[in-house]
Measured scan of single mutants.
Amino acid sequence: MIINNLKLIREKKKISQSELAALLEVSRQTINGIEKNKYNASLQLALKIAYYLNTPLEDIFQWQ
């Protein structure tokens, strides 16, 4: 199981879903879906999320 901390980290950094989506060149709905565990981010997208949030990938998506 993967624990998804994207919403928590994004909100801590005061970045909206729309802002993050624009940086990543995806839709806001994609970010929303990832945060609600409706969609799994591809490895490429997960790495981009970590880069733009300046946060280690394993802090955003944790295996349990």
Rank of each mutant, 00 (worst) to 15 (best):
M1G: 08
M1I: 12
M1A: 09
M1W: 09
I3R: 10
N4K: 04
N4P: 03
N4A: 03
N4V: 06
N5P: 00
N5Q: 05
L6E: 00
K7T: 07
K7H: 07
K7E: 08
K7V: 06
K7L: 07
L8V: 15
I9W: 07
R10L: 07
K12W: 07
K13P: 01
K13D: 03
K14M: 11
K14N: 14
K14V: 05
I15G: 02
I15D: 00
I15M: 15
S16A: 06
S16L: 05
Q17V: 13
S18F: 09
S18W: 11
S18Q: 13
E19K: 14
L20P: 00
L23P: 00
L23H: 12
L23C: 11
L24I: 09
E25M: 13
E25S: 14
E25H: 15
V26N: 01
V26L: 05
R28C: 12
R28I: 15
Q29T: 12
Q29W: 13
T30K: 08
T30A: 08
N32M: 14
I34D: 01
E35A: 03
E35T: 03
E35R: 02
K36E: 15
N37C: 12
K38H: 12
Y39M: 13
Y39D: 06
N40A: 14
N40D: 09
N40P: 15
A41N: 02
A41Y: 05
A41E: 01
S42W: 05
S42A: 05
S42L: 03
S42G: 10
S42Q: 05
Q44M: 10
Q44W: 11
L45H: 01
L45M: 09
L45C: 05
A46Y: 13
A46Q: 10
A46E: 02
L47R: 13
L47W: 08
K48W: 05
K48G: 06
K48M: 09
K48Y: 04
I49L: 07
I49R: 00
A50M: 04
A50N: 01
A50I: 03
A50S: 11
Y52V: 15
Y52C: 09
Y52K: 05
L53K: 01
N54Y: 05
N54T: 08
N54F: 05
N54E: 14
T55W: 04
L57H: 03
L57V: 13
L57K: 03
E58V: 09
E58Q: 12
E58F: 10
D59C: 13
I60A: 02
I60W: 02
I60V: 07
F61H: 00
F61N: 00
F61S: 01
Q62M: 10
Q62C: 11
W63L: 07
W63Y: 09
Q64P: 12
Q64G: 13
Q64V: 12
